[in-house]
Design a protein around this nucleic acid. Structure first.
Lengths: 283, 283
DNA sequence: CCCGCACGATACCCGTGGGGTATCGGCGTG
DNA sequence: CACGCCGATACCCCACGGGTATCGTGCGGG
């Protein structure tokens, strides 16, 4: 017997309407119908009478509703009791500054609900360390962007974003459907801070060192373009700000948002966070 | 939280050895390791200390062992209570006489364990009705063989068996790797009973009516060949008996063992039996 | 002392199942 | 009688659970 199916059953039993129950469960009606039928086959009893007038509980269904509620509560208690044992803990999360996306919020929300006793400490980093302190052991898990040296790390790609040139909206090149690096060769580029990671440096400098103004955070890019008249690269995972334009760069390989932790990581919290993050970005 | 994982956990906790627990659970060790790790991530706690000396429970694991046992028992009680409500029931199963295979036994064994309160009535039929009384509504579900008229029925193929000529072992044709219907044209064929189903009749008579001795059951085929010197067709899903030989017929399309029930069937028992059968034959 | 062995972890592959979208069917209603 | 509501069905696709092969490590024996 599957607790998930029991949860579905309770929803339908309370709504007495497959469509509404499906909405409550954030799934569609057909899978819900199948799930209930599967539960019925598993138990060997019909749980609902589907009359045209509406859905009603059979006697067996009425009994199961009670039992299911108590069983689900029992499971919840079990989870809480075991989780309580592990005592308070903290998880230090490294963000690359632009990690403040809706998906990131969803992950942290889900994680807090799953592990309420774990305190999440967030450490936002400037652009000098693509691993956000993970390589140095200063954070447990990092939500960041590639590419960087992955030796000793467990890294999973979350998204694949094309890379665009960041221009003023009134730039003559802003109207083009796409550009190449050569198109921007004469421009002054804003410059990312020095880093020890060769892959990162080479990728984001597009192969050659730049000499423009230094940007230490993602927001500074915007200022550099708007006020200093420079250009630069940015992953296309957000809207350009007011007065700015993003034009895809044909000859840049796409950039990946990734989640990373130490390869030898054993803490279940951190593994859990890792898994939840991967799941959240898939949905 | 997944009850399946809890069951795995209890097994490991009792054996304190992943390999042995895996044997007990009829799965292999690697999936079990992963399952436990997943449970640990889900709960946010390590449940076992894996020291080289052996596996021991952590404090959290000790608590969970208690809780898990009680939760699993609770689930079992729930299943029983709901199943008890539906009262005694019978499921009438039609068999085509040769339905007595190991796979058939497995299905009925699993079904009995799943639904102990359901009495299975078996109705073996002679060869006059390929649906074993299903079309006539005299059985709930049939384990039989195609082809037959499927209108109004839900039919699922279980196996695909080549069809062979059934000969005496000392027949001159018995040594051939395969035969055609034409090779047997001069022989006297044993004859199946008359049936109303045109598809069935045409298939098993290989297109033309026969005039040999009548066989009403599968076992009679053996006698007809051994003692009457006739030949006939049989699906290659069993060993030929002592003194007999089976030679594949090149120009007969294969025969399918199938499970069937009424298309409009609503009884969860019967749906469950149907599903279990399909699953059992896949494994 | 180092090789072999025991045992849990990891890597990788494949099939099933659970989720999705599109559509049906059957019954009430205007 | 046409339409609409609602659960069921058909079909697709990817994630996950389970499989085999292999690794890494710590311990014991020759």
């Amino acid at each position: 017997m599957d607790l998930r199916l029991l949860g579905y059953f309770v929803a339908v039993a309370e709504e007495l309407h497959f469509g509404r129950a499906a909405v409550r469960l954030h799934i569609r009606q057909p899978p819900l119908s199948r799930a209930i039928r599967k539960l019925e086959a598993d138990l060997g009893t019909t749980l609902f009478d589907r009359t045209p007038a509406g859905v009603t509980l059979t006697p067996a269904g009425t009994v199961l509703l009670d039992e299911a509620r108590s069983l689900l509560a029992h499971a919840e208690r079990t989870r809480d009791r075991v989780a309580a044992l592990s005592g308070p803990a903290t998880l230090t999360l490294g963000l690359l500054g632009d990690g403040d996306t809706p998906a990131t919020h969803r992950v942290m929300e889900t994680f807090r609900r799953r592990h309420p006793r774990v305190e999440i400490r967030i450490r936002e980093t400037d652009l000098t360390d693509p691993t956000c302190g993970l390589a140095a052991g200063r954070v447990d898990v990092a939500l960041t962007r590639g590419p960087f040296d992955e030796t000793g790390l467990r890294v999973t790609r979350l998204t694949t974003d094309p890379v665009a040139a960041l221009l003023r909206a009134d730039d003559p090149l802003a109207g083009h459907p796409h550009l190449t690096l050569a198109d921007l060769d004469e421009r002054q580029w804003f410059r990312f801070p020095e880093t020890t990671d060769a892959q990162w440096r080479s990728y984001w400098n597009a192969g050659k060192p730049r000499s423009g103004p230094l940007v230490r955070a993602v927001t500074e890019c915007r200022q550099a373009v708007l006020w200093n008249g420079t250009v630069g690269m940015t992953p296309m995972d957000h809207r350009p700000g007011e007065g700015l334009a993003m034009v895809p760069l044909r000859d840049m390989p796409p950039s990946h948002r990734v989640v990373a932790c130490a390869k030898a990581e054993t803490s279940p919290y951190i593994r859990s966070f890792f898994a939840l993050t991967v799941a959240a970005f898939r949905a």
